[in-house]
Design a protein around this nucleic acid. Sequence first.
RNA 1: UGGGGAAUCGUCUAGCGGUAAGACUGCGGACUCUGACUCCGCCAACCUAGGUUCGAGUCCUAGUUCCCCAGCCA
Length: 558
Amino acid sequence: MTETVANNFIRRIIDTDLENNKNQGKVATRFPPEPNGYLHIGHAKSICLNFALAKDYNGTCNLRFDDTNPEKEDMEYIESIINTVRWLGFDWEDRLYYASDYFETMYELALKLIKSGKAYVCDLTPEEIREYRGTLTAPGKNSPYRNRSIEENLDLFSRMRAGEFADGSKSLRAKIDMASPNMNMRDPIIYRIRTATHPRTGDKWCIYPMYDYAHGLSDSLENITHSICTLEFEDHRPLYDWFLDELQMPCHSQQIEFARLNLNYTIMSKRVLLALVQKNLVSSWSDPRLPTLEGMRRRGVPPEAIRNFCDMIGVSKQNSVIDLGVLEECIRDYLNQHAKRVLAVLKPLKIVIENFPEDKTEELDAALHPQDPTFGSRKIPFTRELYIEQDDFMEEPTKGFFRLTIGKEVRLRYAYFIKCHEIIKNPATGEIIELRCTYDPETRGGKAPDGRKVKGTIHWVSAPKSLAAEVRLYDRLFTEPNPAIKKDADYAAIINPDSLITLTNCRVEPGLANAKIDDRLQFERLGYFCLDFDANEQKLVFNRTVSLRDTWGKIKIS
RNA sequence: UGGGGAAUCGUCUAGCGGUAAGACUGCGGACUCUGACUCCGCCAACCUAGGUUCGAGUCCUAGUUCCCCAGCCA
């Protein structure tokens, strides 16, 4: 895949800033997840963007948890996010921060806002606040508490902190403009009362800052120069700026918005992802069908492939939906170069090589990567009884089929040329249960001394020497290309019934007894696979990360 | 019907007044001990209408379509 030098509107903004010596020529970004769920491929786009910008401009990128809503957040998520960003391949050095680290400072700054007459304590209930806010087309009206004295506001706010008032009974609001066409500027709430235990600050606080207030301040306190977020925050920018201006923050970070990632046949919404997990529509957050990074990792997707993907899709302000095929292509591209080749049979069909001795086992050489000799090779056992793929035999071959049929010669990968002369069927069902074949001993290793060619090469394993395995095949999660557009869709109804197919009678070459969880494997002619963490001493379990491109499969269908 | 954004091959993305480019997909072909990989070739786009200009995807005007905003979520 060709390396293209990333060029996007954000880089252009930074270039201009650098030319103007803004921020003393520094670039500082941050990735600011809320620890209320697991990271998904959409977050990866943001992570890659922020860390790449820092790297390319000789700056820094912080990891900062936006942990301002204790009711939804959890240490479990914090830990997962830290592990996942690290797994993706990024390093924030000692710059791991939490918005909650700034709670005291934010409180002080809120006091400053009150003292300058720019914030007030409001006694309106949540319902009343909504009524007073007006609508998209009608202006709101001022809260009756809007003109409290600074002294009273200071007193009330400190008592809010002290826990004197019930949840929701009071809030601190910015005094801006209830008639603003931008809803975010209609006296937005800065602090709410929430008696909840915070994952990090415990019960120290019962008031928590809102996103708009906390985020800009966190950026500023960390001297973030370019605060990159997604499009839906575009009309929050005036508020972001308002706080930094009113508080005369020494560092005024610049918020820049880009379009979030959408992938077809899946969803990125953390809310929906959570629902899928809770309704047991998927096994967990790390279900390999999910676009969560933990799920993709379990599926065997290498972090490098995800990073390449994020580079490839670019960054812009256009809403878009990326075809799953682009991701798959990135995965194949990486795995093609880095996966060891092995032989495995997913749907075994027994064949007997009649002219091969009963008790003999030959050890044959097989390259671990045909294009890359540095991978070396391994030995694979060849015996009289073998398994081949059911799909690789046709009693009555269709046009263009050049695998095994009666009387036609094919090559067993790295082994011998064989011919089939008899089909054994289950007399009751007509199902083919065994093939009687002969091999040509002169073709050991897969070459004929007389130079004759065969068109087909098929994979195989030794029947007695191979290992039993379970193999899980994955496909797109949904049958619907854009599930997100279906408001409150019945996701259960659009789950792809073939999104998970579990094959329990698979056979793999014996060397796979030693497979490790991070091994990248190609089962030749089938796809890329990895060991699943469900595997144990008794049972091998493999996940198919992605299939190989299947030109024949396409021809067959059409 | 308020405000904020976005419109370029089927899908993403580039373009910064001077021959519309790349990637993915698709379709041909070559090669092949993986119907894989690799290689070669082909198809394919500027939302509409006006205007400015020698010249407009790019600038101006007016439309159209799509996305976001009325959480004490982020």
